[in-house]
Amino acid sequence: MSTLVLLTITGLGLGAMYFLIASGLSLIYGLMGVLNFAHGAFLTVGAYATWWLQGVLDGIESTAVSFVLAAALGLLVGAAVAALVELVLIRPLYQRHIEQVLVTVGLALAITALVQGIWGADARVYAVPDWTIDTTEVLGAAIPNDRFVEIATAAVVLIGLQLFLRRTRYGLIVRAGVENRAMVTALGIDVRRAFTLVFAIGGLAAALAGVLSGIYFGSIDPERGTSLLIFAFIVVVIGGLGSIGGSAVAAVVVGLLQQYANYYASSGLGDLSVVLLLAVVLLLRPAGLSGSTATA
């Protein structure tokens, strides 16, 4: 029983990170039709910016304060990089989907290589407050506290995104743009501003996932973005492109399946069973769990 609880909460923690990456990917694809391969690079940049800033901020207050401060600035760096990419590289290729994908592929290669060149290929460790490494007893299982941080963060982001999409004017434009971009443009709304916004939000969420992955795995490395991105892609396809709710459900399913299969079957089988799940979903429902229409 305690093993099952541990696996479930760990799986949810993993799913939380997948959701943070997938939500941005899904929104960007839904609105702009861009499959963003550079999303993993945003994650890596955010994670490394946090690590670097923590070194700079070292000595002020406690570890917790310097970490939260560094992470907040790191997220802004992630968002800024993403917005810059949209403005400088994606916008000139408006409506040319293949070339947009190719540019993000080039960026993914270049940024990952640059991070590796600057900070080296070795793993880097965050200085995190001690309590995140301690464990809490839940139903007889000792759960590392950081799992709760990841799940809570993803839940907050999910609720925040839903509120943003449903209750604000910009959210309305984004939703309408996912539904029918031509009509929104015809109504005289500059939908391109929403593009930059969505990219910035996606970059922020990806950087958040990067920082959390540093706590979850205990360290960050330049390849982290690429390896998480592949599972986030699977989550997006299973959840249905353009759907935040679908991504959340799929992220939980994928995270749990991966943990269970890795433990109960054999290590490494979790990753394979996720791919198998993708194949099954595509055979039964090619449009993904929530269909291809946009739901916020």
């Binding site: 080039g106 993914a108 290669l109 270049a110 640059l114």
Partner: peptide, 8 residues
């Protein structure tokens, strides 16, 4: 970094 140059 060769990949940086090639990517760019």
């Amino acid at each position: 970094e060769p990949l940086f140059l090639l990517g760019t």
